[in-house]
């Protein structure tokens, strides 16, 4: 088990690089949408990279994650190959779901990510079910379940957390509280102050942390996953964060006060981590430029791969659909 208080320099730089990849991937996708080269809807996650990367970096190879309608950063953080991710967004045969998923369902069981579940709260019982399977089969694996604060008002949240708690299932519930369920502010639909307060109702520990501090996310997740792996049951983590863009491509986010957006942009998880790593002497301007250009190259390659990949044929409708 990783000792959560001592992060190696390699891990720190890897997390930084991964967050940059998440951000640039989303930006690339956004500009391609404006250019008209990328079809379909997109829900983007700029600003939430620390929660995706901190959580996934604390997992082991055989663990699984479930994700939401906003899955791109989760997929990148979990290690879904960027080429197959981009190809899926382009609805190409080489996509991680063979073009049957699209943006809201990206995933790759090989990489430890179930295809994302776009129904709000839909991933919660599925993650609990995965954890039940691991426990039943006596596998040393855990499930990490991403969802937003809006999902905590859905019935599946109650059912999933309750069952996971009574059976001590190896699962960590990761609530990314980005303050708005589409356009609805959390205060309007939740009476308790914190999502983590709800953990008490199920007899599991709950913790609220700064979801824009990748090291804090990593350490907290490492503790919660160690607990799950040791058979001590689930944990509810609330990571406070903010999405910089609107809910979806057609949402300008006018419901959010400009001062609030500005204040959160000052807490940009990537910029903050840059400052930390620079202060620790781990990130020189040269390293930073190298990371940026390597990421750009990786994305150029992913776009070219997606553009050149074949589109699915009508007969592909029937492949990868039935269990054989």
């Amino acid at each position: 088990m990783t000792e959560p208080h001592h992060l190696s320099n390699d891990l720190k730089l890897a997390m930084y690089r991964r967050m940059v990849l998440c951000r640039r991937f989303e930006e690339r996708v956004y500009y391609m949408f404006l250019q008209g080269t990328l079809p379909g809807t997109i829900h983007q996650s700029q600003g939430q990279e620390a929660s995706a990367v901190g959580v996934c970096s604390a997992l082991q190879e055989k663990d699984v994650i479930t994700s939401t309608h906003r899955p791109h950063s989760h997929a990148i953080a979990r290690g879904v190959p960027v080429n197959s991710l981009m190809a899926e967004l382009f609805a190409k045969k080489t996509g991680c779901c063979r073009a049957k998923g699209g943006s809201m369902h990206v995933g790759d069981p090989e990489a430890g990510m179930l295809p994302a579940i776009a129904i709000v709260g839909g991933g919660i019982p599925i993650a609990a079910g995965c954890a039940l399977a691991f426990q039943y089969l006596k596998r040393p694996r855990i499930a990490a379940c991403f969802f937003g604060e809006g999902a905590t008002n859905i019935g599946t949240f109650h059912e999933g957390l309750n069952m996971a708690a009574i059976w001590n299932l190896p699962v960590v519930f990761v609530c990314e509280n980005n303050k708005y369920a589409a356009s609805t502010a959390v205060e309007k639909v939740m009476k308790v102050a914190r999502v983590s307060d709800r953990a008490a109702a199920y007899g599991m520990p709950g913790e609220t942390i700064d979801g824009n501090d990748v090291e804090q996310v990593y350490k907290t997740m490492a503790r919660a996953s160690a607990r799950a792996r040791a058979g001590q049951g689930p944990t509810l983590l609330e990571l406070e964060t903010y999405r910089f863009p609107g809910h979806s491509r057609s949402d300008p986010g006018h419901y959010r006060p400009a001062e609030e957006v500005t204040a959160w942009k000052q807490k940009d998880p990537i910029v903050r981590y840059e400052v930390t790593l620079e202060a620790q002497g781990l990130l020189s301007p040269k390293t930073k430029a190298e990371i940026e250009s390597a990421v750009e190259r990786q994305l150029d390659e992913a776009v070219a791969f997606a553009e050149q990949s074949p589109s699915p044929l009508p007969e592909d409708c029937l492949t990868d659909v039935f269990a054989e």
Binding site: Y31, L34, Q35, S250, D251, P252
Partner: peptide
């Protein structure tokens, strides 16, 4: 009919 949006330049 739903919303007013600013469209940014992609390049």
């Amino acid at each position: 009919d739903k919303v007013t949006v600013e469209v940014e330049a992609y390049r």
